[in-house]
Amino acid sequence: MALLECKNLSLGYEGHVIVKDLNFSVNAGDYLCIVGENGSGKTTLMKTILGLTAPLSGSVTTGDGLKKNEIGYLPQQTLIQRDFPASVQEIVISGCQAHMGRRPFYGPAEKELAKKNMERMGLSGMADRCYRDLSGGQQQRVLLARALCATRKLLLMDEPVAGLDPKVTAEMYELIETLNRKDGITVIMISHDLGAALRYATHILHIGGKVFFGTREAYAASEAAGSLLREGSGGLLPERPAGKKKAGGKEVRNV
């Protein structure tokens, strides 16, 4: 059974339908990129998958025994967080919250997990730094480390590279790739960056206008891609970097 299955999903608010009859499924180990124009309902779809918003109709079912506290989420930053007085450590460890049950305080296991994920995101030595004093890329890595504390099987990300410069963007994509390939975490990501989506994802979901769901190879050959692909990159399918091969050399577009 699939990890996640969406059947006849319709999304929107107050009777205004944005997406109609959406069908797709995500299997364990997949790397799904959700692409589409602004306002096509990508974030609403993600919130529906997470159970934060109710769908107008249709259903989202989870399989493989996926529990809510095995999901990690990297949301877009909110206004409140920009000047929030909190240390990196405090934010990262708050990702462990869902596994705490009724215990009120963090134990050694949670502290160890937070430390491990801070190291993984290259944040070691910054545990006591204040979140609002960090650069955009560092803040994003803090939020990703927090998401990793929460995730066991599935990681959902809403534009993880928004507002990052090209170098940090490339690093971020590599990190996500490693999580997917090495740690076997299923990834669902919203992206504006079709080049990167075609490069890293195994599957693509295109919503708004023409709806498409399938493997990246099928997508690159399809019509739906045409509306988003720029001149020059149409039909050109970049090589998906295998294993540990560095993705550093190739350009990563940040739209």
Partner: peptide, 23 residues
């Protein structure tokens, strides 16, 4: 406040994240 300190932090810092991950 002391018992729910960490939950209060999580909910204050990022309500949607807390909700989405099972809190």
């Amino acid at each position: 406040f002391i018992l729910f300190y960490h939950k209060i932090f999580a909910v204050t810092f990022d309500e949607s994240f807390a909700q989405a991950t099972g809190t």
